[in-house]
Simulated scan of single mutants.
Amino acid sequence: MHSTEPVYFEFPEFKSSSRRDYWLDICLEILRAHRFIRKYNLRENQVNEALARAILGIFRYRAIREALHVFPSNYRTLLCFNLAESLPGGDMILETLSNRLAMMKYSSGRRDAFGSPNVKKQSVQPFFLLTLCTLGIMSCNEEDFNREGTFRLGEYCAGEISPLEAAVKESKQNTGRAVAAQATVDQVKVEGIDTNLAVLKELLYPLIESFDRLQHLVSWEDPWKSGLFLLLISYTIFRGWTRYILPCTFLSVASFMIWRRQTGKMGPLEAFKIVAPPTKNAVEQLLTLQDAVTQVEGLIQSVNIVLLKMRALLYGVIPQATEKVALMLVLVALALAFVPLNYILLFAFVECFTRNMPLRKESSARFMRRTREWWLRIPAAPVELIKSDDKKRR
């Protein structure tokens, strides 16, 4: 959309953060009003009505600031286009507004005995544009006004609220819920790495406990329980019931949520009790953070080494190791092509679960040691670090 109107820039002195925020809100309102116009492809009078909304909002915004001097942030709601970007469901408000502007007409046609326009479709009059005309800010044609000197208002909904008002009310309700939810989030935020780790550990306690129980079964410290678990899972895989595990998990969680919804009280949820770790000063927290960063760096280095060794195997740096890996990949491909998936899963589960079995523990340990020794003999592919050219950045 091209415009021949001039553009004026004002460069005020930004003496404080409130003044910068004030002018930033006005600039964003103008930019988002034009984005709204381009997005919904408004034309002619619809563009003028949308810009008139933004202009009146900026006038109210400026008038309140001049009257109060100390400007509260909650008066930013006067800027409708800027506000719609941050409200829940703000896109629905703008879409409803665009539909309302699509029904806008200037010419009313013939009038009936009551002085109302006699049109086939419900029309919406440019209320904000005519307001600017009444205030003398803009010039309008005389046919846009009634003979009595008052302008016509549009979009009456008998017995119900207008779609735009309904969208705004729904957005206000969602905003209230979002603010209440954000208040609970701010209350449960804690400071300190150790404290956050303690909270995370308590929240993940069911998963950690399940993993510990699984580790106990895999270690074969209790052969009866481990054997029973092996038979149960093997029978499940053999019958092809593994595809029902995830749906059954979701149904169980949904059933628990519905049961708690029906039987639980409507009051607030009980606080999650966590034993706070001993407090640490700033230096101790920095040392803890440094240790965590060092561990993450070591993990990344290990991953890089694995990838570089895989690159060396891929390009045949060690021919014997490359031949063994290629032969293993061929066997895996043939198994995936000709052996049913259930049998492959069953074989993999039994092989991994029975490694610590008394009958296989020694042979499995020997096999894992030989595998680690073979992996250590594989060199990593070379890496060359090239410094970036500072002249190009400049």
Score class of each variant (00 low, 15 high):
residue 197 L to G: 10
residue 158 A to V: 08
residue 163 P to G: 10
residue 170 E to V: 07
residue 249 T to Q: 04
residue 178 A to L: 11
residue 169 K to Q: 10
residue 162 S to K: 04
residue 177 R to G: 03
residue 196 N to M: 08
residue 250 F to A: 10
residue 185 V to D: 03
residue 165 E to M: 10
residue 240 G to V: 05
residue 212 D to V: 06
residue 177 R to H: 08
residue 232 L to P: 00
residue 158 A to N: 03
residue 185 V to F: 01
residue 148 E to C: 14
residue 159 G to M: 05
residue 179 V to M: 09
residue 233 I to A: 15
residue 157 C to V: 15
residue 251 L to I: 01
residue 200 L to M: 11
residue 205 Y to S: 07
residue 231 L to W: 01
residue 214 L to D: 04
residue 251 L to T: 00
residue 174 N to P: 01
residue 225 K to W: 15
residue 238 F to Y: 10
residue 166 A to G: 13
residue 154 G to M: 02
residue 176 G to K: 14
residue 222 D to W: 04
residue 253 V to P: 01
residue 201 K to D: 07
residue 207 L to T: 14
residue 212 D to P: 00
residue 244 Y to W: 05
residue 255 S to V: 03
residue 199 V to Y: 04
residue 193 I to A: 07
residue 214 L to K: 00
residue 189 K to A: 09
residue 197 L to Q: 13
residue 216 H to Y: 05
residue 204 L to E: 05
residue 175 T to H: 08
residue 217 L to D: 07
residue 211 F to L: 15
residue 148 E to Y: 12
residue 205 Y to W: 09
residue 226 S to M: 11
residue 207 L to S: 11
residue 156 Y to F: 11
residue 237 I to C: 03
residue 202 E to T: 14
residue 252 S to R: 04
residue 189 K to Q: 08
residue 218 V to A: 13
residue 230 L to W: 06
residue 168 V to D: 03
residue 252 S to A: 04
residue 246 L to N: 03
residue 241 W to F: 12
residue 213 R to I: 13
residue 226 S to D: 14
residue 220 W to A: 12
residue 151 F to P: 02
residue 159 G to I: 03
residue 184 T to P: 00
residue 198 A to K: 05
residue 177 R to V: 09
residue 219 S to Q: 08
residue 210 S to E: 10
residue 253 V to D: 00
residue 235 Y to P: 01
residue 197 L to W: 02
residue 167 A to C: 04
residue 196 N to C: 07
residue 247 P to A: 04
residue 247 P to G: 02
residue 159 G to C: 03
residue 246 L to A: 11
residue 149 G to R: 00
residue 199 V to C: 06
residue 245 I to N: 00
residue 176 G to Q: 12
residue 199 V to K: 01
residue 219 S to E: 08
residue 224 W to I: 15
residue 181 A to K: 09
residue 152 R to V: 00
residue 187 Q to C: 02
residue 192 G to V: 12
residue 237 I to T: 06
residue 171 S to C: 10
residue 195 T to C: 08
residue 245 I to D: 00
